[in-house]
Amino acid sequence: MMTRVLDHGVAPLLLIPSVILLLVILVGPFFYMVWTGFTDLHYALPGRDGAFVGFDNFRRLMQDDPIFWHSFLLTLKFVFWVVLVEFIFGFALAMLLFHYIKQHRFILTMLLVPMMLAPIAVGLIWKLLLSGDFGMFTYYMRMIGIFDQQTSVLGNASLVMPAIMMIDVWQWTPFVTLVMLAGLLSLPKEPFEAAVMDGARPVQVFKDVTLPLMRPIIALVLLLRGIDAFKEFDKVFILTGGGPGISTEMLSIYTFRINFKDWDLSYGAVCAFMVYLVVLIMCSVFYKAVYWNQGRSKPTQAVTS
C-alpha cells in the first residue's frame, strides 16, 4: 500500500523541505557570492555600494595581485605535502595494526585523540609547545643542539611552514589510519588466500591485490584530506596570523583578510570563488581517478581466475 502511494508521486513531495533547506543555506549564498564578485561592494570605502563592475575583480585577481598567487601556490604546496605524508604514515600504520596487532582498538582510540581536538585547541597547544621562550619542543631542540638560543620556530620564515605542516600531519594522520583500517577490514579474504596459494610474495599481494581493492577508499581519504587541507585556517590563524611577512598566508587566511580586515567584500567573493573552484576541480580529479580504470581493474576476478 505504502509502496503504491510513493509510486504515485508522493515521494518527490517529501523531498521538498530538504531541497528548500539546501537552496536557502547552500545554493542561494553561493550564487549571491558569485554575484558579489561582479560588483564593487566594499564595506569600508564610501561610494562602493555594490554597483555592477563586470569582470573587474576577476581581472584584478588574474593580473594585479601577486599576494593572492603566492597564497594560492603556498596552499597547493601545503595540500600536496600534508596529504602525501599523512597518507603514507596513515596507510602504514593501518597496515601495521591490521596485520600485526590483534587488540588494536585501544591503540586506535589513543591515536584518535589529536583528531578529536578542536583546531583552535590544537593551535593553542602547539603555540605553547613551539614557544621560543618556554616551549617544550624548542627546549629539547636547543638541548640537542639543533636550535640556538635565538631560534624561534614561529618567528622564522623558513621554519614556520614546515612546522605547520608537521602539526597538520600530527592531527590528521590518525584519521587516515582509521579510514584505511576500516577499508582493510572490509576487504574480502578470498583474493588474498588465492594469491598466497599461487605463491605471491607479500609485496606482490600488496601491489596487485591490496592496492587495487583499496582504491575507492584511498581516493576517498585523499579527497577528504585534500579538501580539508585546502581550507586550512584555524591553526595558522592562531599560530602566526599569516606571518611572519606572508610566509604562512594561505588562501583561506588571505581571503579572510580581504573580507574581514579590508572589508572588500566584492574582491573577497572572487577569492572565495577561487577556493570553491579549486575544490571542485579536486573533487572531479579524484572522482575520475577512482572510476577511470574501473572496467579493467577487477583484481578479484584477475587473481581468482
Binding site: 569600508a44 618567528g155 622564522n156 620564515a157 599569516g242 606571518g243 611572519p244 611577512g245 606572508i246 610566509s247 583578510r257 580586515k261 579590508d262
Partner: peptide, 18 residues
Amino acid sequence: PQITDILVRELSGYMSDA
C-alpha cells in the same frame, strides 16, 4: 585600516628577513 594592514605585512616581512 588598510594602510595599517599593508604596513603590518611589510614590516613583518622585513623583521623575518624576507
